[in-house]
Design a protein around this nucleic acid. Structure first.
Length: 423
DNA sequence: TCTGGGGTCCTAGGACCC
DNA sequence: TCTGGGGTCCTAGGACCC
């Protein structure tokens, strides 16, 4: 059995821990620049304040109902999240930290009373951290998400919902709207509804092969998970990130080079810090600027990609390269709203000078020889980050073995390259 | 006027190879 | 003149998650 533990209204609940007087009051947390709503207490949700709503649009509600407003404090939330996982880890060794406020758990085999187990976790987390949580139990991760949904929405469960029997599962799927399924987003739910799949039950009863054909293998897995067949396993080992991003909206428009350089270098500094903390080097980096378009709220992004064939971790080096390349996307007189950097191709060690080799057979003239070599360099360049240097090349002749049991042999001669090839 | 920030993964289609 | 079939790799774009 899987179990999904989720903190209710996480950011809002974190703020309440330090302001107990605000428990059971309407409270919201705003994004950076206090632009829009990113978390709401239950009472704020009940007032009709929606997720992601721009602050100016709900200002009248804030005033009328005296809603408590907080700017976000991600350092605090990150710290609470870490403590949350420490407490939960004392209940089971097999756990996956899925997000800042969610943890998947494999239920230890000796736990027979799931409701009791769930209530013990709830009590402990509240006692140690003051955070309210919801818990869902089920045979697959997707179904545990479903169980968690009901544990949170329906007060009859008291925060713990167990979906174990076929009857309970079937009943839950019958009333769960398709867009509430884990992995089914806005677009997909519209598509599914168009096909007459309105509830989770409909998806679970569809033909898996057909679902794969009309959408993807992932949705097929989701379908099987709804049937109780586990397709997504617990990812217990914390994985190394594949990209690191730092970005911000400015809150006002910027149009001078120097004004853009300040946030960019700060982002690179923060990105580099994250790299160092994890012992990673970036072999590529994007930086981008967002310009407001005529369409309300829409941004258009200009970006530039830089390659670091030997890997970077040093922020000064990154800043230098980015500033140098900035004019290629920056224009005087344009008003920028947002900027960011994205570090990719992250690897644990600084690259050594590596020699790559490639072999390609050919017969014939000297022209063909160079053609073959160019091709080999091209292939290597593509394979190893689009920039490589052809330092040397050799030609080998092949000799048939003269006797049985003898391996074929090669003689190698280094060629005189007329020039060095840089790609 | 004012609209977040940080991730992952899949697919389609083209280029290329044998 | 006839013109297969199977594979890999890469990229852009889209969708999803919190």
């Amino acid at each position: 059995m899987f179990c999904l533990i989720d903190i209710n209204n996480f950011y809002a609940s974190c703020e309440c821990v330090f302001r107990p007087d605000l428990v059971r009051k309407a409270l919201i947390v705003l994004s950076s620049n206090d632009g829009c709503v990113i978390a709401r207490s239950q009472e704020a949700k009940d007032l009709g304040i929606s997720m992601g709503a721009p602050f100016f649009e709900i200002e009248h509600l804030i005033k009328r109902y005296k809603v408590n407003v907080f700017s976000s404090n991600f350092t605090l939330y990150g710290d609470m999240s870490r403590r949350f996982s420490e407490v939960v880890a004392s209940f089971s060794e097999d756990l996956e930290i899925y997000s800042i406020d969610e943890i998947f758990l494999k239920v230890p085999s000796h736990e027979e009373n799931l409701n009791g187990f769930g209530n013990r976790i709830r009590k402990t987390v509240f006692q140690y951290l003051g955070l309210p949580i919801s818990i869902g139990f089920a045979p697959t991760k997707t179904l545990a998400k479903v169980a968690n949904f009901f544990a949170k929405k329906d007060p009859v469960y008291g925060g713990v919902c167990v979906l174990e029997t076929q009857k309970d599962i079937s009943h839950a799927l019958k009333i769960l709207p398709v867009e509430e399924i884990w992995g089914v987003g806005r677009k997909l739910s519209l598509k599914l509804r168009g096909l007459g799949i309105n509830f989770a039950k409909d998806l679970s009863e569809a033909d898996p092969k057909w679902i794969r054909k009309i959408h993807s293998v992932v949705l097929e897995k989701t379908l099987r998970e709804l049937q109780g067949i586990p397709c997504f396993s617990l990812e217990t080992a914390p994985s190394s990130p594949k990209s690191i991003q730092v970005s911000r909206s400015f809150g006002r428009t910027l149009s001078k080079t120097e004004d853009i350089q300040v946030p960019l270098s700060s982002f690179l500094e923060q990105g580099a810090l994250k790299l160092r903390k994890r012992g990673l080097f970036a072999f590529g980096l994007y930086f981008y600027l967002g310009v407001k378009t005529t369409k309300a709220g829409r941004l258009f992004f200009l970006s530039k990609f830089l390659v670091f064939p030997e890997g970077v971790q040093d922020p000064r080096l990154m800043v230098e390269s980015v500033f140098k390349a900035l004019p290629s996307i920056f224009k005087e007189g344009v008003f920028y709203k947002k900027a960011g950097i994205l570090l990719i191709n992250l690897k644990p060690q600084e690259a050594q000078l590596t020699l790559f080799s490639s072999q390609a057979p050919f017969k014939g003239s000297s022209d063909e020889k160079y053609k073959t070599l160019f091709k080999a360099v091209d292939r290597l360049s593509k394979k190893h980050g689009k920039r490589s240097l052809c330092l040397a090349s050799s030609l080998s002749s092949y000799w048939e073995p003269k006797r049985k049991n003898m391996s074929p042999s090669y003689t190698t001669k280094w060629t005189d390259l007329p020039f060095v090839v840089i790609r």
